[in-house]
Computed example of a mutant assay.
Amino acid sequence: MNWNKLQDNAQLAQIKQESAEQPVLIFKHSTRCSISSTALSRLERNWSDSVGIKPYYLDLISYRSVSGEVAETFGVDHQSPQVLLIQNGECIYDASHFEISFDELKQQVVTV
């Protein structure tokens, strides 16, 4: 799995543009939380690039302001850990904690 790092608010405009071409995943990770580490590990173990989702990783401890901007930009409540699936500039799916599942993400892409 090749993560793209999300470290700057300006990248959110780029993500919106990219999501017109392919679905984009944002994974908001707390490096201080064991649940977040477990969710990240499960996602990485089950990941397949063949689905065509471009993954972004946000270390929300280091980039807390970016995490807040993600929540505001895409109209979701902040959670940690959290995944957001962005397509055509909009968040079409989000999940947090142990609800984070690659199989569920795949299903969301197929149905759109």
Results as ranks from 00 to 15, higher is better:
L105M: 14
L40M: 04
G89F: 00
E72S: 13
F98Q: 15
P55T: 05
E72K: 13
K106D: 00
Q17N: 11
N4G: 04
A13Y: 05
S67F: 07
D94M: 05
S65D: 12
Y57W: 12
H29C: 02
E90S: 02
T111D: 11
R32A: 13
S62F: 02
T111P: 00
R32E: 13
F102K: 01
E90R: 12
L43D: 02
N2A: 10
V110L: 11
E72Q: 13
V76W: 12
K106Y: 00
F98S: 11
L60S: 03
I61H: 03
W47M: 07
L105Q: 02
S101N: 04
I26T: 07
Q11E: 11
H97R: 10
Y93F: 15
L6P: 07
S65F: 11
F27I: 00
L58M: 06
S65M: 11
K5G: 02
F74M: 05
V112L: 13
Y56T: 04
K28F: 10
L40N: 01
E72V: 07
G75L: 09
T111G: 02
S62R: 12
C33A: 06
D94H: 12
K54W: 03
V109A: 04
K16L: 07
I92R: 05
L40W: 06
I86P: 09
L40I: 01
S30V: 03
L6Y: 06
Q14I: 14
L25F: 08
A39H: 06
I86L: 12
Y56C: 03
L105A: 06
W47I: 06
F27P: 00
V110W: 02
I53M: 03
Y57P: 01
N2T: 15
L85D: 01
Y63H: 15
R64A: 04
L60N: 01
R32Q: 12
R64Y: 13
H78C: 04
E44P: 06
I35P: 03
L60Y: 08
I92G: 00
V51M: 10
N88H: 10
C33E: 08
D103Y: 08
F27G: 00
G52S: 11
T38A: 14
S96Q: 02
Q107T: 15
H97L: 05
Q87T: 02
V110F: 10
R45V: 14
Y56K: 04
A10F: 13
A95L: 06
I92F: 02
R45P: 09
S19R: 04
P23F: 14
K54N: 09
P81I: 09
T31C: 11
K28G: 05
E104I: 11
T73P: 01
S65R: 10
L25R: 06
L40C: 00
L60E: 09
F74V: 05
I61D: 01
L12A: 06
E99L: 11
S80N: 09
F102A: 14
T111E: 11
S34D: 03
Q82W: 01
Q82F: 09
V24R: 07
D77R: 14
Q107V: 05
G75Y: 09
